[in-house]
């Protein structure tokens, strides 16, 4: 029987790499999707808005685990041969897209209405208004909650272990089964997640407090 020692710890560290990789890919793809959703969500056309809202409601109103199962079993039915990696990446990108879309929508709408009106009166087109006036201001507001969501996303990747995707949590299960030392393995796994997430959380808090100082100074002027 194996006991939990440095080899086993290195195995967990190696698997942690896949947690990071999955989080980053889902964040990148989900970010692209979320940007699109946020833009659609503030469209002046009602049907477009409804589609974006429906998408957000669907993904925020159902369990991530169900989304994973549906992608995993569902896309196979449409003749797409998916390995676990592709299915998991698609599901997490869709999940991240919904949350980021909603977060960023809020940030875009937090930009004062007068900024739209001012840029319109300068004869900028809708896309120019977005690109040169609104988005640069929205991005500043968006960074702290986006970093905060990254923490949520890293933690959410643990659920992928349930459908057999080998990342940190699944590696922990494997090690626990091999060593019969769950009282060591799982706290170590939790500690590794903590090492990953806590700096991000602190960073998000720091960014937020800095933004608040900036806003206060802006008001004082």
């Amino acid at each position: 029987m194996r006991t939990f020692s440095s080899n086993e710890f290195m195995f967990l560290l190696g698997a942690m790499r896949w947690t990071v990789v999955l989080s980053l890919i889902a964040f990148a793809l989900g970010g692209a999707l979320g940007g699109l959703i946020a833009i659609l969500r503030i469209s002046s056309l009602l049907p477009v808005r409804l589609v974006a809202t429906g998408y957000i409601q669907l993904f925020q109103g159902t369990p991530l685990l169900m989304q994973l199962f549906l992608v995993y079993y569902g896309l196979g039915l449409f003749g797409l041969r998916l390995d676990a990696w592709t299915a998991v990446v698609i599901a997490y990108a869709a999940y991240a897209g919904a949350f980021l879309g909603e977060i960023w929508r809020g940030c875009i709408q937090a930009v004062p209405r007068t900024q739209w009106e001012a840029s319109e009166s300068l004869a900028l087109s809708y896309l120019q208004q977005l690109r040169y006036v609104i988005l640069p201001q929205a991005v500043r507001i968006a960074i702290p909650p986006t970093v905060g969501f990254l923490v949520q996303l890293v933690k959410a990747t643990a659920v992928a272990s349930i459908i057999g995707f080998v990342e940190l949590t699944r590696a922990g299960q494997l090690m626990s089964n091999a060593t019969f030392q769950p009282m060591i393995v799982y706290p170590v796994v939790a500690a590794l997640y903590f090492v990953l997430c806590w700096p991000l959380s602190l960073w998000a808090q720091h960014l937020e407090s800095r933004l608040r100082v900036g806003a206060a100074i802006g008001r004082a002027k």
Binding site: K155, A158, Q173, P182, P187, Y193, C197
Partner: peptide, 16 residues
């Protein structure tokens, strides 16, 4: 807040 819910469940169910 900085560890996954699933891992918390495993700690409570398997480690404790």
């Amino acid at each position: 807040r900085n560890t996954p819910f699933l891992v918390q469940i495993y700690v409570i169910f398997f480690s404790l």
